[in-house]
């Protein structure tokens, strides 16, 4: 889980162009959207692509994203639960 969390943080920084940010600056439990990292709706869509591209998990309804992408921790738990291979 720790490895997955670190990997995810790196992937998020890369996919969302969070330049000048280091993985340990993203709090694992902290909200990614709104008050947290200040991500927006396009970032949420980009995270859907990230999840599918890197972990083969499709999120059909963007509304589900709210819970899944709440924090790095919720995303890691979602991936762990749904990853098939």
């Amino acid at each position: 889980m720790e490895n997955l969390i670190l990997k995810l943080k790196k992937q998020i920084i890369d996919a969302l162009n969070l330049e000048d940010m280091e993985p340990d600056e993203i709090e694992t439990d902290e909200a990614l959207f709104d008050d947290g990292l200040g991500l927006d709706s396009i970032d949420a869509l980009e995270l859907i692509v990230l999840t599918e591209k890197n972990y083969g998990i499709k999120i059909e309804d963007p509304k589900d994203g709210k819970k899944i992408f709440y924090s790095v921790k919720t995303l890691a738990e979602f991936i762990k639960k749904h990853k098939t291979n």
Binding site: A15, N17, I42, D43, L45, E46, V49, E52, K53
Partner: peptide
Amino acid sequence: YFPSPGVFV
């Protein structure tokens, strides 16, 4: 095939 919304916009 991973169309990027962040680039498309």
